[in-house]
Nucleic acid binder design. Sequence first.
DNA 1: TATCTGACGATAG
DNA 2: CCTATCGCCAGAT
Length: 91
Amino acid sequence: MSTFAERVHAVVRGLPSGTVASYGEVAEEAGAPGAARAVGRVLARSDGDLPWWRVVTAAGRLAPHKEQEQARRLTAEGVACRDGRVLGMRR
DNA sequence: TATCTGACGATAG
DNA sequence: CCTATCGCCAGAT
């Protein structure tokens, strides 16, 4: 009996290195389309085993609270980021 | 059980 | 390009 938080946790853990997914995508994968906000809440309380940095906003914008650290981690994995935004999803 | 919160999303200005 | 507002959902208190 997995709760939404557990499903989100699993989805984020399944994100391949070097890729990024939006909160909305994660919510949809977790079986709760439209629950992007709830996903953010879950990640905020998530443990260190969760690659939260691979989750960005639908606009390619990084987390408003840790965008600098997130950008650093993404860049380290091969994801091009610039000024708190993920490149590659421009336009 | 009710109310508030929040790492969002989309649209409007 | 940016900020502001409304609507959305599940969790926390």
